[in-house]
Design a protein around this nucleic acid. Structure first.
Lengths: 121, 121
DNA sequence: ATTATTGTATTAAGCTACTAATACAATAAT
DNA sequence: ATTATTGTATTAGTAGCTTAATACAATAAT
């Protein structure tokens, strides 16, 4: 992954999202140790404080646990991760369907549209 | 509509999106006159400048046209509106599918998921 | 015991973005 | 000609973000 950011939102939010994605993808498996804050910050090219802010978000989400001096690990609760995965997928689909509905697409229309997009992708 | 905002993004962006949606839905038809900046601002409960900023975005998108003292109208180019509709729908679907793919869903999985969401909605 | 590592907290500075208040400019209405 | 309406521009204040520099706390490693 490449740690690229857009300018329309705080970097720490984008960092949190990308870190979360890596966990959900299994790149940082449940129970595994995350690199130190300073190292992650260097990798992403941001200030350690900014990375710290992002990691604090992950902890609030229950995805990571900080252990004083032995670093920080991904939660060992696999269910938390699976739930996060489901929620992310569900909100993505729901958000998409909401927009299509707002635009006046019927459910049937929406499905056809999704199929179409899938076909020529 | 209710002009509600979240705190994670600039209000003017949210205003622009909601105004755009109204146009795409036909609430403000092609060629029709939009309420004055100050009136829209009052309706939405924001500062006129903030609304002005949102309207500037609509003009940049080609959806609205400002006429010095005779107010501001929705573009008369229906094609621009239809294109905006398509783009909005397409990006919604594409964004959703991108997220599902990132999470490891296959295309078949994604379709099943969408169907499921549609069924119990 | 000492040292190195790691997470956390604090303070400050620079910068940008958002919002607000107000003034200005142009023209339609009278 | 005057007035009211409308879009636009200017200025300023506030808040948040990012970075930076340090310092502290806890504990694993030696």
């Amino acid at each position: 992954m490449d740690w690229t950011f857009t300018e329309d939102r705080p970097i720490w939010q984008q960092l949190a999202e990308q870190l979360t994605l890596r966990i959900l993808k299994g790149e940082y498996p449940s129970g595994s140790r995350l690199p130190p804050v300073r190292e992650l910050a260097a990798l992403a090219g941001v200030n350690p404080n900014t990375m710290q802010r992002a990691l604090a978000q992950l902890e609030q989400d229950g995805l990571a646990v900080a252990n004083r001096t032995s670093g920080r690990t991904v939660t060992e609760d696999g269910e938390v991760i699976r739930r996060a995965r489901r929620e992310r997928a569900k909100s993505a689909v729901a958000g998409c369907l909401r927009i299509l509905e707002e635009l006046g697409y019927t459910k049937a229309d929406a499905l056809v549209y999704v199929k179409e997009e899938l076909s020529h992708e």
